[in-house]
């Protein structure tokens, strides 16, 4: 039953599902609630049907996606091998925020999914309007890339 009275003046900080999801995304670590809200205002929420393509291999890459709800497969279209599967709360494509290289694999929604897109143009706008916030995000991306590089090195050393 719906309450007949609601205090409209008390803001429920975690009422926004996007805010709830992105505060756990590594790219947006070390940000205050207010800063996270600034990010939410820049993101684009999109709904994808089952089997709808999110991006294709070699397509120009513009930014990253955070999966709010549903599932996404990243696959290699030539060999038709699934590289990884993402669930709610996961993010992918963050490399496109800093370089302009085309996508390295394809992404497809395996069930009806809700995604939020955060693109290079949004990051550029943010860096103009609030450079400190932009710097924190760039630092976070650098940390993620560093971590990946370390892991790749470890894998290479193991294989050799």
């Amino acid at each position: 039953m719906k309450p007949i009275y609601k205090n409209y003046f008390r803001k429920n900080k975690n009422a926004d599902p996007i805010l709830e999801t992105i505060e756990n995304v590594a790219v947006f670590e070390n940000l205050s609630q207010k800063e996270l809200y600034e990010i939410v205002r820049l993101t684009h929420q999109r709904d994808y049907k089952k089997d709808e393509s999110i991006f294709k291999k070699n397509a120009p890459a513009e930014g990253m996606y955070v999966l709010l709800d549903g599932a996404v497969d990243i696959f290699e279209p030539d060999s038709n091998t699934i590289l990884t599967t993402f669930k709610s709360g996961d993010f992918f494509g963050e490399l496109a925020l800093i370089d302009e290289e085309p996508r390295m694999a394809s992404a497809i929604a395996t069930e009806s999914s809700k995604l939020i897109g955060f693109f290079r143009t949004d990051l550029l706008t943010l860096m103009k309007r609030s450079p400190e916030l932009g710097n924190v995000i760039l630092m976070n991306i650098s940390r993620i890339l560093g971590e990946r590089l370390r892991k790749t090195n470890e894998e290479l050393t193991k294989n050799n």
Binding site: R46, Y48, S53, A59, P60, A61, G63, G117, F119, T121
Partner: peptide
């Protein structure tokens, strides 16, 4: 959805 990234690029 199909034109999202391209559209953003055109606007920019």
């Amino acid at each position: 959805n199909k034109y999202l990234e391209v559209g953003l690029r055109v606007i920019y």
